[in-house]
Simulated scan of single mutants.
Amino acid sequence: MTTTIYGIKNCDSMKKAFTWLKEAGVAYEFHDYARRGIDEDTLKRWAAHTGWEKLINTKGLTWRGLSDAEKSNLYEARAYQLMIAKPSLIRRPVVERDGQLMMGFDPTRFDEFFNQ
């Protein structure tokens, strides 16, 4: 099974996810937004599972740093543009495994996701 985890290396949620994966013996590929960015096709694929609104981390510093004009009137195409320009807006981690998708870190959800 192929597992890819997307995020930013120094994020606390990512560190917890990396630790969980290591302890569980799950092999994975890491896609670092800071080095590799993200493309619109990937965001659209994820949005098909979750809706584009759930991709955006509205609790993070990057979201809080956006202007009120950027936050209001947010629509799908504009959201993709913002996430491509500022990948730290994307909720972390995003985990893809054999066509399945999970967002955010929670040990119980990771157990369920990886032990299906």
Rank of each mutant, 00 (worst) to 15 (best):
M103S: 11
A77K: 11
G51N: 01
M83P: 06
T4P: 01
W63V: 12
T62N: 05
L55M: 07
V95M: 01
H49F: 13
G51P: 00
D106A: 06
N73R: 08
D68H: 08
C11N: 12
I56E: 00
A85D: 15
F113M: 00
T4K: 08
G99F: 08
D12G: 04
E29W: 00
Q100M: 06
D12E: 03
A27S: 15
M102V: 13
N57F: 07
F18V: 05
F105H: 01
L82R: 04
G51K: 00
K59E: 07
D32I: 12
K59D: 08
K59V: 12
Q81R: 13
K71A: 14
G104Q: 04
A27G: 14
N57S: 13
Y75T: 12
G25L: 02
T42N: 06
G37F: 06
I56A: 05
A34V: 14
T58R: 14
L66K: 13
L74K: 12
T3W: 11
A77H: 05
D41G: 07
A47M: 08
A17L: 02
R35K: 15
Q116K: 10
A69T: 15
D106E: 10
K54T: 14
L21E: 02
L74W: 13
D39Y: 10
D68N: 10
K15N: 02
P87I: 11
T58F: 01
W63E: 12
V94Q: 10
T58H: 03
K15Q: 03
G99E: 08
A27I: 09
S72G: 13
P87R: 06
K71R: 15
G99S: 06
F113Q: 00
G25A: 01
Y6Q: 07
